[in-house]
Design a protein around this nucleic acid. Structure first.
Ligand SMILES: [Zn+2]
Ligand SMILES: [Zn+2]
Ligand SMILES: [Zn+2]
Ligand SMILES: [Zn+2]
Lengths: 148, 148
DNA sequence: GTATAATTGAAAATGATTTTCAATTTCATA
DNA sequence: TATGAAATTGAAAATCATTTTCAATTATAC
């Protein structure tokens, strides 16, 4: 966490941006949660301890956190922008339960290799990818999507 | 296209919904375009020939087209809901160019098999998946994302 | 044809995201 | 440590895609 804070400060300095109390609070809150958090969720978390920090500041700081390479966007198909930790977290893909909403992080080097190959075959230079598998987790076997 | 129209009519009848002039116009417009079209884009296309058809009708009909199994949602990460043809189009994944926005439909049975295996290993029952590879197409090699 | 129930289009509502702006704060420099 | 230019802040408003409302219109079963 110390390393992340340092990277954040460096990212700010590099762009002539200021290190503020609010920005540090937002970063800390983001680093503390291991979920795939939305801006709104993070704002509500922070509000408990720091009700003086506004939504816009959380929103803007999340952009800065992304720019510093500490977070990446994930999309679970629920129309909400979510962020997950990037620093110290290797690339992975997701299994997402249609019933309970839980997700699992997975990684398969064979799939990754085939993805490279697939792109190259089309003379396409891959930069990044997103692979999300939707279905039912062990606990939700047999349930339909409606059981929340 | 005749088959698709029939399926659409069947879908409506099955749910006690009415076959209207507007719904057929929207379906035809959707079937005619082979792009991954958004509601707004389709509305603008239709407006040329049928300015009397409202946005809400296009929006609502697109839902019905999905429910009839004729369209599926695709997400290119641009925050807009897009639909592509489903009927007669096998499952595929996408290569999406970060520079020019063009996309290519791809399919790799080996990847599909490994995806199944990966999910099963976690006792997860896969239903559907999304795999999007972002990068640069042949024409845009070496360009940065800013060149549109 | 009539009755009934569904559909329509315009406009308003929604909900996440993004911007505006005047007051406040940071921080390089003196 | 004081100063002042430049960046930041929070509240509120704007934006933008999506979704709903509602009174008038239309499809369809009888
Ligand atoms: Zn991957
Ligand atoms: Zn589950
Ligand atoms: Zn696939
Ligand atoms: Zn496609």
């Amino acid at each position: 966490m110390q390393k992340e804070i340092e990277l954040f400060r460096d990212g700010l300095k590099k762009n002539n941006l200021k290190v503020t109390r609010q920005r540090l609070r937002v970063l800390e809150a983001f680093l503390k949660t291991e979920k795939h958090v939305s801006c709104d969720e993070l704002y509500r978390l922070i509000r408990g301890e720091h009700p003086e920090i506004g939504y816009a500041t959380v929103y803007r700081t999340l952009k800065l956190i992304q720019e510093a390479g500490l977070a990446r966007e994930v999309d679970f198909g629920d129309k909400v922008l979510r962020l997950e930790h990037e620093y110290g977290h290797k690339h992975h893909d997701h299994l997402i339960c249609l019933a309970c909403g839980k997700f699992f992080e997975v990684f398969d080097p064979d799939i990754e290799a085939l993805q490279e190959k697939l792109a190259k075959k089309q003379n396409f230079t891959p930069v990044r990818h997103k692979m999300d598998i939707f279905g039912y987790c062990q606990k939700c076997q047999g349930k339909s999507a409606s059981c929340v």
